[in-house]
Each structure stands twice: as structure tokens, then as C-alpha cells.
């Protein structure tokens, strides 16, 4: 009971601090803007810990944050090996292959207005499909190592990037294209100097959507067969051993990797599309 009360107190305290901070005079300062969500997150984690201890929740159902953190510290090397197998080998290589293929197809298709009009609806349709369901098929074709994961990821990221690139390449005004023509620029200079740069905000939109898809594809594909290393493999086997704190430790790694991947794309986007209104 005491723990439940303590959890309520923590909640009230955290919320009160956030009310003060967000309605205070300095609420628009950068430090405060970062601090508020951090305090909110910390409050939730503290409440979780207190409630798990207080109600003596079975660790097989929900482990306490402290035991998850302990696992993170203890299992560092193993988590790193899983990270390398799933994220660096499976997800990243698939992401690069799928992204490159999508860019090439988009640039090729863009030469014909007819193809563009066909690819946009079909690609948009394919992007909404449960492509992750092809994971068992790819594992069967390419074996259980990272190649099959990369293939699933490549197919999953292909369509969002393709659709966004094709849409972006069409996003130049007639005036801009005419200007290039008055300069005597042919197809390639126009593509490289005007249309690709103008398409960058769209391309990065696709690339950012694809980051999460890549991680999902790589992890889910490991449920259908993998060497004895990898995040998906670890999640499913730890689950079989009822080591839920290990499962959660993998979740934390996946969350950090996902956010870092997304953040990296956002940073590159800021560099590349510094001229776009949304970045200024």
C-alpha cells in the first residue's frame, strides 16, 4: 500500500513540476523544453518500479525497471553481438540495398511520365501491404543468416522510398525547369542540379519512414529462423526461458537503435535540405 501511495506522490510531484515548468516564465527555453519530457518519462519509470514492488508483480509478467537496467549492464557483450547481427548486418545492409534500388528505379521511371503515373498508385498501394508477412518465405529461400533479413528489409523499405522519390522528382515548378532550359541544361544537369535537390525533402521523408520498417523487418524475420545470435532470436528464446528482463533489455536496445537511426537521418536531412522552409 505504501508503495502505491508513494507512486501516487511521485506522479503528483512530477506533474506539478511540469505544470510549473511549462506555465512558467522560462517555458520556451531549450533546457526546459528538453527537461519536461524527461521528467515525465522519469516519473513513469519511477511509478512503474514502485507499483511493481508494491503489488509484488510476478517478474514473468512485468519486470521492474531496476532489473532491466541490471540486465543491460550485465549482458552488455551479448546485447552488442545481437545488435551487430540484427541492426548492422540485417537491417542496415537491407536498408542500403532497398534504398539504392528504389532511388535507381525512381530516376529511371521518372524519364517517362506514363511510368510515373503508374508507379505512384501501385507503389503507394504496395507500401500499405503487410510485406513483413513475406519473412518466412525469404528465410526459406536465403537461409537463416542475415542475408534473408536484409532481403526482407530491402523489400519493405523499397516502396515508401520509391513513392516519395518519384513524387519528389515531380515537385519542380515549370518556371524552375524553364530557367534550366534557358541555361541550355540537358537532362542530366537538370536532374543533378535542380530536380534531385528539390526532391530531397521527399526522399528524406521516405528514408525516415523506412528506418522503423527496417528494424521491424530485421527483428521479425529472425522469429522464423536465425543463427543463435540476433535481437529477434534473443527476444523469442529469452521469452521461452521466462527471462522477461532480458526481453525488455532488448526492447530498450531496439528503442535506442530505432531513435538513433531516425535521429541520424534527421541530422543528415538538416544538412542536405538546409534551404527548405521547414528547416529554417
Amino acid at each position: 500500500m505504501i508503495y502505491a501511495l508513494a507512486a501516487l506522490v511521485v506522479w503528483a510531484l512530477g506533474w506539478w513540476i511540469n505544470i510549473r515548468l511549462s506555465n512558467g516564465m522560462r517555458s520556451d527555453e531549450r533546457v526546459v523544453r528538453v527537461a519536461i519530457p524527461l521528467i515525465f518519462g522519469l516519473t513513469i519509470v519511477l511509478m512503474w518500479e514502485l507499483l511493481v514492488i508494491g503489488f509484488e508483480v510476478n517478474p514473468v509478467i512485468l519486470p521492474a525497471p531496476s532489473s532491466i537496467i541490471e540486465r543491460l549492464g550485465m549482458e552488455g557483450p551479448r546485447l552488442w553481438a545481437d545488435f551487430k547481427q540484427t541492426i548492422l548486418k540485417g537491417a542496415l545492409s537491407g536498408y542500403v540495398i532497398g534504398g539504392m534500388a528504389a532511388l535507381c528505379v525512381a530516376v529511371l521511371a521518372d524519364r517517362s511520365d506514363f511510368l510515373t503515373r503508374g508507379i505512384l498508385p501501385v507503389g503507394g498501394f504496395m507500401a500499405a501491404l503487410p510485406i513483413v508477412g513475406t519473412a518466412p518465405i525469404f528465410v526459406k529461400w536465403l537461409g537463416s543468416d542475415w542475408e534473408s533479413k536484409a532481403a526482407v528489409v530491402a523489400v519493405m523499405v523499397f516502396f515508401p522510398i520509391l513513392v516519395n522519390t518519384v513524387a519528389g522528382l515531380r515537385d519542380t515548378a515549370a518556371m524552375q525547369r524553364d530557367l534550366m532550359r534557358t541555361y541550355g541544361a540537358g537532362y542530366w544537369p537538370t536532374l543533378l542540379k535542380l530536380r534531385l535537390p528539390a526532391a530531397m525533402p521527399f526522399i528524406f521523408n521516405g528514408l525516415k519512414i523506412a528506418t522503423t520498417l527496417a528494424l521491424i523487418g530485421a527483428i521479425v524475420a529472425e522469429f522464423f529462423g536465425s543463427p543463435t545470435v540476433g535481437m529477434g532470436f534473443r527476444i523469442s528464446t529469452s521469452f521461452g526461458q521466462l527471462a522477461l528482463d532480458m526481453v525488455w533489455a532488448e526492447i530498450v536496445v531496439a528503442a535506442i537503435a530505432g531513435s538513433a537511426f531516425y535521429g541520424a537521418m534527421t541530422l543528415i536531412e538538416k544538412r542536405v535540405t538546409f534551404w527548405h522552409p521547414s528547416q529554417r
Binding site: P37, F40, T211, T212, V220, G232, V247, A255, S259, F261
Partner: peptide, 23 residues
């Protein structure tokens, strides 16, 4: 609510980058 905007919204955005589907 300004408080909810400031405390929940960043997490709503971050949560979209987490491969939760895998779980």
C-alpha cells in the same frame, strides 16, 4: 493543455521510431 503538449508529445513522436511491432 500546455503541460500535456510539452510532456507527452515528444514521447508520442519518439515512440513512432521504436520497432514496437516486433514485440
Amino acid at each position: 493543455s500546455r503541460v500535456m503538449d510539452r510532456s507527452v508529445m515528444p514521447w508520442a513522436i519518439v515512440s513512432q521510431t521504436i520497432p514496437i511491432l516486433a514485440l
